[in-house]
């Protein structure tokens, strides 16, 4: 259930959606959490506590009630540079990719990679597509991508290897906001062609 990560961090192998992250954050000496799909990385101050003490406290942290989450409807220009490559990969027309992508409801699994990047689950199986063989050095802010069974929007211009099928003008990350990210774990998202 726990794995050593570094001399100031350990993995708690329980899916964050079933974990009371607020309770983990309150553990004495814990300074940060990096949740992902199946685990949460717990970062602590090694001068204030130890792996063993954090583990003991985390075991007692209650299983979370599912938060209902908000629903977001996000406009997308489906004109990404990889739209045709994705369509070809699945032997379907570009319009069909758009129709399928915009028909599903997605859930925010966690935010990671870069500030405000929400990993969305719920991509229709017919659209699952491997990452690009060569990652792009520059993916513009607002680009909507697909990687394997995931879909997501790049909040800022970064390098990236996801297949880009569209873009949105919606601001996903505001450093002055509370919370800073528009999409929060547990939220639901649907896209519509703009």
């Amino acid at each position: 259930m726990f794995r050593y990560a570094s001399d100031q961090a350990l993995y708690f192998d329980r899916p964050p959606r079933e974990t009371d992250l607020a309770a983990l954050a309150r553990i004495d000496g814990v300074v940060n959490l990096h949740p992902a799909y199946e685990s949460t990385l717990i970062v602590f101050d090694p001068l204030r506590t130890t792996h063993e003490a954090v583990e003991r406290a985390a075991r007692l942290a209650a299983t979370a009630e599912q938060r209902p989450g908000r629903h977001h409807t996000i406009p997308v220009f489906y004109d990404g540079p990889d739209l045709l490559a994705v369509a070809e990969h699945h032997s379907m027309a570009g319009e069909r990719v758009i129709e399928l992508h915009a028909s599903a409801e997605y859930s925010v699994a966690f935010l990671g990679f870069v500030p405000g990047f929400a990993y969305l689950t719920g991509l229709p199986a017919a659209l699952h597509t491997p990452r690009r063989a060569e990652p792009r050095q520059v993916v513009p802010a607002g680009a909507l991508g697909i990687a394997g069974a995931q879909t997501g929007i790049y909040p800022r211009t970064t390098p990236g290897g996801w297949q880009l099928i569209g873009r949105t003008p919606v601001e996903l990350f505001d450093p002055a906001g509370d919370p800073m990210s528009l999409l929060q774990p547990g939220d639901r998202v649907t896209f519509f062609p703009a």
């Binding site: 990560a5 570094s6 100031q8 990096h34 992902a36 990385l41 935010l111 990671g112 990679f113």
Partner: peptide, 29 residues
């Protein structure tokens, strides 16, 4: 499966050349 990455992690991408994650690091990988 993507998981959290700790400060100072040495990760190996497909080209085999190590990347050491530092203070402005990505949070998962």
């Amino acid at each position: 499966v993507t998981e959290g990455v700790p400060l100072g992690a040495i990760q190996i991408p497909s080209n085999g050349q190590p990347i050491l994650l530092f203070v402005d690091q990505q949070t998962t990988g």
